[in-house]
Simulated assay, not measured.
Amino acid sequence: MDSELIDWTVCVATRSALGPNFVRILGYFREDGTESVAKIEDAMRVKDPASMVLAAHKLKGEALQLGALRLGLTAEQIEMTARACVEHHDTPEEVIELVVGLQALFDETLAILEEEASPLVQQRNPLGSGRRLG
């Protein structure tokens, strides 16, 4: 259910603040997020938590700014675990399930956000969101 993936209060506020630039920012999120997920997966494959930290941090920040709550919190958990692994000279196996599910979570989240940015959704609700808050 998308209400578990998206914090609509944050999403609507960001969309309102960005106005017509929301779609462009969403495009950057698609590009950056795709790159970050790939870097996290690659770092997991070679057991390199240091490389995982930066990519997870970037994904977390961008996701949370758009209201992509579950994606942001998942990226944060990967980031924090990877940071601890760097400090303890350990490998990040404990987040393997999160990393394995990250691409699907990113894709599902992005699809919801892109639907929200659709001009058809904007026509249905000229106040800026196809979602009902509350």
Rank of each mutant, 00 (worst) to 15 (best):
S3G: 03
V53G: 01
H88K: 13
R15V: 12
H89S: 13
T74R: 03
R70C: 01
K39Y: 11
E97V: 13
A43S: 10
V86D: 04
I40R: 00
V46F: 06
T109K: 00
I40H: 08
V37F: 07
P49Q: 10
V95L: 11
A13R: 13
A75K: 06
S16T: 15
S129T: 15
A13Y: 04
R132I: 15
D7I: 13
M44G: 02
I96D: 09
A55K: 11
K39Q: 13
V12H: 12
V99M: 03
Q77G: 13
I78K: 12
M80D: 06
T9D: 07
A43G: 09
C11H: 14
E97L: 07
Q103D: 03
V53E: 03
T109L: 00
V10K: 02
F29M: 06
K39D: 12
Q65G: 05
T81D: 01
E31A: 11
C85G: 14
T109M: 01
H89Q: 03
L18T: 00
R70A: 00
L71D: 04
A104Q: 03
A104M: 08
E97T: 05
H89R: 12
A17Q: 14
N125F: 10
E41C: 09
A38T: 14
I78D: 02
F106I: 15
E116N: 06
V99W: 05
E35K: 13
E94L: 12
P126A: 11
P119R: 10
D32A: 05
K47P: 08
V12T: 15
R24E: 07
A82I: 12
E35Y: 10
L110A: 03
V95S: 05
L66Q: 09
T81K: 03
E115R: 04
K39S: 10
A68D: 07
A50L: 12
V95Y: 09
V12W: 14
K58P: 11
L133V: 15
D32L: 02
